[in-house]
């Protein structure tokens, strides 16, 4: 019996978003990969499309007191409170290492006011080796800024527009699922000149320590992530794809190649691996390999062919 061996045809996983060429469409999500170097012993950063930094603010922040995280069925809650080293330290201490890698570097930024977002974006204009900004308008764990802006279309518009005006980099707002209509927020991003959109951030949730009769997290509520939220993220990518022209970067509970495929087919141009990095630091690299294999086996020459494949064809 003849066995037909799959031809070792070159599979093109490269994508381009707003002029930035990514070797592949797999990124590691903000807050789950530190500043990149932490995982360098275990993960070859040259094989990942992009590393997205922990959220950076204008001055370093200490975040919330413990407890900050709690595991839930197929997920976890976190309320870190933007604990980070600040934008200046990121530029002076962390960029040097990241510049040595082939991976693209995306800085995730936040502020308590729109002015603070703008200040962080301005500072990053001098960061050599950076490729894009991701705008955190979606963390549910701080009183000021973030989801406060991302849950209202008018403030989303104002925030994204203000950053676009000062930044030399393409801008990717990260959207919150904790809204009535995510499409409306996505359209506001588009109108404000965003270059692409990542979605979704975590879902607001909580846990109660029934023995101590009080909430587990010091912040009372936290953000739910992990495989538990994948169906929610997928539905939101699906909906936004139908109304918004910008490239979408899907994030939320992606654990493996088949999860990633679902996101591409729903309309994502790229994906981010988040909580899965804690479970298996190799997840992103395994997904890159898995996508190559899938494309090869299904005679797909470019990953771009998959984008929105499951969407109804236009009539």
């Amino acid at each position: 019996m003849m066995v037909r061996v799959a031809q070792n045809k070159k599979i093109d996983l490269a994508i381009e978003i707003a002029g930035v060429k990514f070797e592949n469409p797999v990124m590691v999500a903000s807050g789950t990969f530190g500043y990149g170097k932490e995982y360098a012993d275990l993960v070859d950063l040259n094989q990942i499309g992009a590393v997205i930094s922990k959220t950076l603010t204008i001055v370093p922040r200490d975040g919330h007191p413990p407890l900050r995280t709690f595991e839930t069925p197929s997920g976890m809650l976190n309320a870190i409170g933007l604990h980070n080293i600040g934008v200046d330290n990121f530029i002076s201490e962390k960029m040097k290492f990241l510049r040595t890698k082939k991976t693209k570097v995306i800085a995730n930024i936040a502020g308590s006011t729109i002015e603070e977002y703008v200040q962080v974006a301005e500072k990053l204009n001098s960061a050599e080796g950076l490729h894009m900004l991701e705008i955190n308008i979606s963390s549910p764990n701080v009183k000021k800024g973030c989801m406060e802006f991302g849950s209202r279309a008018d403030l989303t518009y104002e925030c994204v527009k203000a950053i676009k005006e000062v930044s030399r980099y393409p801008v990717m707002p990260k959207l919150s699922p904790n809204v009535t209509d995510i499409v409306e927020i996505a359209l506001a991003c588009q109108e404000a000149g965003a270059d692409c959109i990542s979605l979704i951030n975590t879902l607001v949730g909580m846990a109660i320590d029934w023995k101590k009769k009080k909430p587990v997290l010091s912040n009372i509520t936290g953000g739910l992530s992990g495989p538990a939220i994948k169906p929610v993220a997928l539905a939101m990518v699906w909906k936004v794809f139908q109304k918004v022209k910008l490239p979408l970067i899907g994030v939320g509970g992606i654990m493996n190649t088949t999860d990633a495929l679902e996101f591409f087919m729903a309309g994502a141009t790229a994906i981010q691996v988040g909580t899965a990095n804690y479970v298996d630091p190799q997840t992103s690299v395994k997904i890159v390999e898995g996508l190559k294999k899938y494309c090869q086996e299904n005679k797909i020459s470019s990953i771009k062919e998959l984008i929105g494949m499951a969407q109804p064809s236009p009539t």
Partner: peptide, 17 residues
């Protein structure tokens, strides 16, 4: 001893005062 999601210093989840 505390619960640690990542163990690698990235999640900032396991802090002590």
């Amino acid at each position: 001893e505390v619960g640690m999601p990542c163990g690698m210093g990235t999640c900032m989840g396991c802090v002590v005062k």
